[in-house]
Structures are given as structure tokens and as C-alpha cells.
Design a protein around this nucleic acid. Structure first.
Lengths: 210, 210
DNA sequence: ATCACTTTGTGAAAATTTTCTCAATCATAT
DNA sequence: ATATGATTGAGAAAATTTTCACAAAGTGAT
């Protein structure tokens, strides 16, 4: 199972496979062929097989794929069997929404703390966690072995906070701020630019309106 | 300026160009060459020029691109000069976060109403708007000429609500539910699958951990 | 055990996307 | 006015991604 040479396009599709396989599992379906999955997901069967074969042969001729097994394997590829400790920086609505999102825990992403620079937010309880002041950031990261930080703060603050996080060795940043963060090679950033997404919708709406 | 034959890969990059041009505008920079922009954005100058030339020649030899003009043109391509009326279905933390996000208004996306099925949420004020019961959905859409619905509800509810929305002629759905919605051809869906994004981060973290 | 059928994995072809290259054009300084 | 230098737009080449096609391998019924 080679890694590093696999395109981000393939990686981007893996969570979707994982999601559909979860659904199939929930429905008690034990096996599925690439052809059936392709009809379900509206992608070609070829692409499914090609994508999966980047990581190994998970299927069986004449049978198809075992749903449970494939679900688990993709989870493994995505690293969902690893445990991650998160903090959320920015305890506004978005930060609180993410803190309350139970499914992340199930996938091994455990939120350990929330931070906010607003003095009025200090001590407010969110999902049994007190909102902490930014001054405690560095110590907390060390004490709780935090490896991922979620940034739900305005862009200027995000740049500053990212610097602090990087200096104390954070590995991953899940960035919701409206800016692309420049980070060293040994830090991974995943951006969620909600505005970009809305603009894409806007573009695709244009030809409906004449 | 042909449309419809432009790949989604190109479309996906336009909001990012738009964002960087906004930054340049804010910094008072009047002109930029594709080479300078490429250094800033970490993409090739070729790609920038090729992307833009899908829609027309916005630059000038020996000069580069006028920041203001290009910003406006991309905004136009993305349809940001059109007005859209939104409703948000699901007034939890995420729905409230989006309702309070001021920048959407600036881009022509005006939130007109919030809906929630929880009786305890009825009448709660979010950004000067009362949370409404789901029973009022259809009438409200007609009365306020709503063209986009934002779904910040669980997946089972999302499927049901999407059906209702489609029946009363919604044009766009911005879907935050953890499921791919099947919609007719004349409806545009833009999915924001936060879990997928987190899984991508998870994958990219793997090779940092040995 | 055999046979007809299904379905994967994979090499090759096709399609698409990205990068390269450079003539044409414009800016700017003198 | 002219010359020098900068930079685009676009055609061609290269690289990448997706799809095709089919041999090989397994299923399941008889």
C-alpha cells in the first residue's frame, strides 16, 4: 500500500465511499459490486475500482466487495482508527456547533478544550467544557497532547493563532477562517471556506435564471 | 463568454482568485501580473491565465491585470452581482452561525427566515428573525421569493425537507447534512460535508505520525 | 465436478487538465 | 518617437485522470 503518490482527487473521494458504505452497513447489506455502487453514487464503476486499487485489491471476482470489510479498510486508509485530540479556538456559534457534533467522537476525534479571546465567554460551559482564555493555549496543548486545532475565528486572529499553534508543534489545522494559512511543511491544513462553497452554488445557479 | 462547458475544477478555483483579489484590493494594490499572483497563491501563472481565459481576456500585455477590474469580473462570473433570498432550515448552532455571518449579505445572499421543527425553538430570535415552525415553510418561500435553502439539519430530515423544497420550486440547496441529496436536474445542490473534510485532514496527518 | 455467469484487477486508450513556449502587444523610460 | 522590457493569450506538448475492455478468477446452481 504505497502512499504519498496518491492524488488528492482520489483522497477526496474516499470519505464519500466511506459514507455510502456506512449507509449500506446500516441497511444490513453485506456485499456490493462496483456496478451497483456506481449506480448508487453516480460515478463510474471503473473509477471506483481504480480508486480502491490504489490501496489494494479489496474485492473478489464474481462476488464484489464485502461492505463491512471495505468500510473498515477505507476507514483504516483514512486513519480513522487513530485517536486525535482536538481543541477548538473560537467559541462562537460555529465553534459550539462543532464542539457539539457527536459524530466526530465516534471517528476518533476527541474535543478536549475550547478557547476564546472574548472575556465574556470565559467559563461558559459548552458540552461540559469551560471556554478557556487564550493565555492557556500553549500549556493546554502540551498537557492534553493536542494534535489538531480547529480555527473558528476571524481571519486576522487565525493568522496569529496559527503561528502560536505551529510554534508549539501542532500537527493539523482545520481552518474555517476566510484566509489561506501559510504553514511549514510538517503541518497539515484543511480549509473549509464556506464562502467559496456558496459562490460555487451561486455560479451553478446562474444558468437556471436565464 | 461560453458557459456550461467549463469544468468544475476551474469553477472551484474562481472563489479563491476572488478572495486573493479582495485582499489585494484591501491592500490598495492596483495591478498584478499572473507571475506575482502565482507566487502569492502557490499555483502556476499558466493556470491562472488559462483559467481566466475561459471567460475572456481580462489582462493586458506588459501590464498584467487590474485588480479592481478582475475582482469585479470574477464576481460577475460567479453571479455575485445577483440578489438571492435564503432561508435556513435548522436553527441549531450551525444554522445560527450561518444566520449571523454578515459577509453573506455583502455578497448578495440575504437570509430572510429561519425554520426549525423543535417546538422549543419557535419564536426564538436570531439576528432579529424569529425561528418559524416547519408548517410555514411553503407559504414563506412563495411570499419572500426564496431561491436558496440552507439545510443544517440531520440527514433523515434533510431528505424530507429537500423534497418539500423541490416541490415548491426552490432553485438551490446548500446542504450541510451528512448525505448526498438526489435532486432533479433543475435544482442545484452544493454539499458541505464537514466530516469528509475532517477525514481528508486525518488522511494527510497519517504520514506525519510515522 | 462441471458449466454458465458474474465481477474484479489491470493494461491500454481516451479524455481532460496542466504546463510549456513564444509571438504579439502594450507599458514605460528616454 | 523609439527602444527596451514585461506580460498576456493561445496553440502545442506533457502530465494526469478517467474510461474502456477483457483475461483471470471466483460464485452458485445443477
Amino acid at each position: 500500500m504505497e502512499r504519498g503518490d496518491i492524488s488528492q482527487a482520489v483522497i477526496s473521494r474516499l470519505p464519500r465511499y466511506h459514507r455510502f458504505l456506512s449507509e449500506l452497513k446500516d441497511q444490513g447489506i453485506e456485499r456490493i459490486s462496483s456496478a451497483d455502487l456506481s449506480r448508487l453514487m453516480h460515478v463510474t464503476a471503473s473509477q471506483i475500482r481504480q480508486d480502491l486499487n490504489n490501496f489494494g485489491g479489496f474485492g473478489q471476482q464474481g462476488y464484489g466487495y464485502n461492505v463491512d470489510y471495505l468500510h473498515e479498510e477505507i476507514g483504516h486508509i483514512l486513519g480513522l482508527d487513530k485517536r486525535h485530540n482536538l481543541i477548538i479556538v473560537g467559541a462562537g456559534n460555529l465553534g459550539q456547533a462543532l464542539a457539539n457534533y457527536v459524530n466526530f467522537d465516534r471517528r476518533g476525534f476527541h474535543t478536549k478544550g475550547l478557547f476564546d479571546s472574548d472575556p465574556h465567554m470565559q467559563g461558559v460551559m459548552v458540552r461540559n467544557m469551560p471556554v478557556r482564555p487564550m493565555s492557556e493555549l500553549e500549556d493546554f496543548i502540551k498537557e492534553y497532547s493536542i494534535d489538531i486545532a480547529v480555527l473558528t475565528i476571524p481571519k486576522d486572529a487565525a493568522v496569529e493563532v496559527a503561528d502560536r499553534l505551529i510554534r508549539c508543534g501542532i500537527q493539523g489545522i482545520w481552518n474555517f477562517a476566510h484566509i489561506d494559512l501559510d504553514v511549514p511543511e510538517n503541518v497539515r491544513v484543511e480549509n473549509v471556506h464556506l464562502s467559496d462553497s456558496l459562490m460555487k452554488l451561486s455560479y451553478n445557479l446562474r444558468d437556471l435564471e436565464g
